[in-house]
Structure formats: structure tokens, C-alpha cells
């Protein structure tokens, strides 16, 4: 399950990544160098609804993530194929990428990415059943 605590002690070959989920909650996790951000979400069981529908095959754009400008500049070049799929993503920005195409690097430690808001209707996630806590 995701932890939303600030980065704990991190093994040397691991990189800390923060995902800001649609409801504003920050999901913090650690990733192995070389993993794609989609693999990070899947391997760490991060609860991001509908993320990665096509399982990383550049056919759905559900893995859309928004980067911070300075990090975005340093990412590997984007291919036409990724741009094509990104063009169908919701809430496209100038610093958008597809999470299945971006691999984690050591230099990205502390990276924060934003899961874009759904355009149609953004209401705060209701967790019925969990609320009786």
C-alpha cells in the first residue's frame, strides 16, 4: 500500500519519487533506477485510478504525468509516437509526458510528478466505507 510519509531511509540504488494524486494527496515511494514511472506505480501498488490501461504499450495515455519544468528539460527526448498518444491525454501541458516512457534515473531523486486532474468533473474522492474510521 502507498505511504504518504516523507522519504524514509532510502537504499543507495533507490530513488525517491512523489506522485501528487488527483485528489491532491501525495504518494511517496522509492523506485529502482531504470524502472519506468508506470512500473513504479504498478510495482509499488500506488493507488492511482485507471493508470496504465494499455500496460505501457503507448496505446492509451492513461499514464499521463505532469513534470516540473526544470526536471522536464532534463528528460530524454520525446518520440513522435509518444507525442501522438500524449495528444489524446486530458489536461495536456507543456511539461506533460507519458509515465510508461519515462525511466527513473539517479539524478531524479526527490522528483515530484502530478497526476493530471480529470477535466470532465473533479469532485473530491469519496471513500465510502472507509469513512466510518
Amino acid at each position: 500500500p502507498p505511504s504518504s510519509l516523507p522519504s524514509p531511509t532510502v537504499a543507495p540504488d533507490r530513488v525517491t519519487v512523489h506522485f501528487i494524486n488527483r485528489d491532491g494527496e501525495t504518494l511517496t515511494t522509492t523506485a529502482k533506477e531504470g524502472e519506468s514511472l508506470l512500473e513504479v506505480v504498478v510495482n509499488q501498488n500506488l493507488s492511482i485510478d485507471g493508470f496504465g490501461a494499455c500496460e505501457g504499450t503507448l496505446a492509451c495515455s492513461t499514464c499521463h504525468l505532469i513534470f516540473e519544468e526544470n526536471v522536464f528539460q532534463k528528460l530524454d527526448a520525446i518520440t513522435d509516437e509518444e507525442m501522438d498518444m500524449l495528444d489524446l491525454a486530458y489536461g495536456l501541458t507543456d511539461t506533460s509526458r507519458l509515465g510508461c516512457q519515462v525511466c527513473v534515473k539517479k539524478a531524479m531523486d526527490g522528483l515530484t510528478v502530478q497526476v493530471p486532474m480529470e477535466v470532465a468533473d473533479l469532485r473530491k474522492g469519496l471513500e465510502v466505507g472507509k469513512q466510518s474510521k
Partner: peptide
């Protein structure tokens, strides 16, 4: 496309939950 359908289905489910 499927992502459009996904997003509107989540919206509907949200209405049911509300």
C-alpha cells in the same frame, strides 16, 4: 476513446457514491 470512456465512467460511479 477508452480514456474518455474511463473518465466519464468514474464520474458516474462518483455520482452513485455520493
Amino acid at each position: 476513446v477508452i480514456i474518455t470512456t474511463m473518465s466519464d465512467s468514474f464520474d458516474t460511479a462518483q455520482s452513485v457514491l455520493e
